[in-house]
């Protein structure tokens, strides 16, 4: 067990070391910092102009069954309000701005679905999807340097692999949902996603 684990992590490090320089610093980090420290509305406007249309696009995909533009619009505002309110909790060593905003949009979406679906619940979304203050440190997989590599590798994915990733990450679909929609066995969906992830150097044991 542990030896295969070590070699996975080792090969990941090697692959990442070869992925080249980290590239230019993320300009949006500074914008978030200014919002957090000075409630800088001009910077927030730039963030809004850049991210709100992407967030809306994401939300339109994710909730296609209720798709109505005003709803997506309202939820987009909700996500951006959280960006404003939580700016001081953004930690650039833990996540890129894109990733951080994705998690806020994802949580807002699931929160909305849960509130409007039949499923009642007794727990907050943020109690499940949280940045754990865990006694167990995150194993350093150098995931923050993955950005350039993700971009390059994503461009080379075969269409069938890119498709399942798109459905899982952007269209709010579980493995089971994808299997049903594409009329594929669950195992095929799982292996396509695993193959795609391994090309992105995300090497999960099973």
């Amino acid at each position: 067990m542990s030896s295969s684990e070590d070699s996975n992590i080792g090969s990941l490090r090697k692959a990442l070391a070869g992925a080249g320089p980290q590239g230019a610093p993320d300009p949006w980090e500074a914008a978030i910092r200014k919002v957090a420290q000075h409630q800088d509305r001009a910077e927030f406007k730039k963030l809004f102009d850049h991210y709100a249309p992407m967030i809306k696009s994401f939300l339109c995909k994710g909730i296609s069954s209720y798709a109505d533009r005003s709803l997506a619009e309202e939820m987009t505002q909700e996500v951006m309000l959280k960006v404003w309110n939580k700016a001081d909790s953004f930690n650039p060593t833990k996540a890129s701005v894109n990733t951080w905003i994705f998690t806020i949009a994802r949580n807002t979406r699931i929160d909305f679905i849960r509130r409007n679906g039949r499923a009642g619940r007794t727990i907050d979304i943020e109690d499940i999807w949280h940045e754990a203050d865990s006694p167990e440190p995150v194993v350093e997989l150098q995931q923050r340097r993955v950005e350039t590599m993700i971009r390059n590798a994503m461009a080379t994915l075969p269409e069938e692999q890119a498709l399942v990733l798109e459905k899982a990450f952007m269209e709010n679909k579980s493995h089971n949902d994808i299997a049903e929609e594409l009329a594929l066995p669950l195992g095929t969906v799982k292996s396509r996603i695993r193959l795609a992830l391994s090309k992105l150097q995300i090497l999960i044991d099973r």
Binding site: M54, K61, E73, A95, T99, F102, M170
Partner: peptide
């Protein structure tokens, strides 16, 4: 947890490359 961070990075990456949808 590290794997989930990596997977979430994929989500962030894909979000940033969506065809933008104009807000009002």
């Amino acid at each position: 947890r590290a794997h989930v961070q990596q997977l979430t990075d994929v989500g962030g990456h894909m979000l940033a490359r969506l065809q933008p949808e104009a807000v009002s």
